[in-house]
Amino acid sequence: MSVQLATQPAILERRPGLLARFSDTLWRRPSVLLLVLLGPPVAWLGIIYLGSLLALLVQSFFSIDEFSGMIQYEWTLKTYGELLNPVNLDIIARTVLMAAVVTIAAVLVAFPVAFFAARYASGRWKAVFYLGVMLPLWSSYLVKVYAWKLILAKEGILTWGLSKLGLMPLLDLVLAIPVIGGNSLSVSYIGTFLVFLYVWLPFMILPMQAAMERVPVSLLEASADQGADPSQTLRHVLLPLALPGIVAGSLFTFSLTLGDYIIPQIVGSSRLFLGQAVYAHQGTAGNIPLAAALTVVPVVIMGFYLWGAKRVGAFDAL
């Protein structure tokens, strides 16, 4: 008894229709599929983002005619020379110092929170942790800043609470500190620092928590078995292994503070930060070349920051 088997083609024949032929092409040529998937985002990054940065860089090599106020489209370094003016140097130094202080404070505040979440929180408590960290990110950025403006105001809830606790003399003493003080927390560098720290803290906690979860518990236990006290284990075991997370979080907090102009505009003194200066020169003053040159400053700073982080091996375990 013979059984006759129906033969099937090894490869499907081309189907009619434009969409069907396009689908067959993607199946036969994975490189075309990869190009279709990655083409739009790469084009967006290359044309829109990098193209705008290139246009900004080109604008920074022009200058403003002091008599007419018109842009002179001639290649010059005059605009970059204006960055060395005391006023602009003060703005750059103030912004970089605030970004550095906010980043250091965020590391100090986020470290115990991230360590507890990575080592001791589990199940429902870990869900509560993620909810508590992510919840502030779900609300409007402007709403949070204006809420802090009211909290830190002279008639705000923070001042009211300190007065009930009899701590107003301490607050007055802090506000009397030169440069960083003011009439109230809402018009001082202290208030600006507190709002920056609150807004960007989740961007520090999450990378640090993810990095600490990858640290084997056995290494910490082995360090204790070798006679190391908790401080030695922290310095020589935990910190080096958690460094990639710290660097990743610091990239967010430092760069976001460096370029922000809304928080200093709403909470803080009248002294400008880089973002405010760029906004003022680009809009009110109409000095687009100087605004472009000021914008190049944080780009260069972040370039050196990334270079230094790579030199110390912070990206090796990312």
Rank of each mutant, 00 (worst) to 15 (best):
F203W: 14
G161A: 15
L185A: 01
M204I: 11
P202A: 09
L206W: 10
V195N: 02
L197P: 06
S223G: 15
V215T: 04
D172N: 14
I157D: 01
S140R: 04
I205W: 07
V174A: 13
G191D: 03
V145E: 06
M208I: 15
P178W: 06
S223E: 06
Y146I: 10
L165Q: 09
P216A: 07
D172A: 08
Q232K: 14
M208C: 05
D172Y: 11
S231C: 08
A147Y: 10
L171A: 06
L206V: 15
G156K: 07
I151S: 07
R214C: 00
W160A: 13
I151W: 12
M168P: 00
G161V: 12
V145T: 14
A211G: 05
Y198M: 06
L152E: 05
S218F: 02
L167S: 01
V195Q: 05
A210V: 13
D229L: 12
L219T: 02
A222M: 09
G166R: 11
K164M: 14
L220W: 00
L171R: 03
P178D: 05
D229I: 11
S223V: 10
V179A: 04
I151H: 03
A222H: 03
L142F: 15
A147P: 09
M212G: 06
A210C: 02
V143G: 05
A222R: 03
I151C: 07
L185V: 02
L194R: 01
I157V: 15
L170C: 07
Y198Q: 13
L197D: 04
I180F: 11
L206G: 05
V187Q: 04
L150V: 13
W200T: 12
V217H: 04
M212N: 06
M212W: 07
A147N: 10
D172E: 14
G166T: 10
L171M: 14
L142Y: 13
V145L: 08
I151L: 15
S163C: 03
L150Y: 11
R214L: 13
G166A: 09
V179Q: 04
G181V: 03
E213Q: 13
L170Y: 13
W160H: 11
S184F: 00
L165K: 06
V215N: 03
N183Y: 01
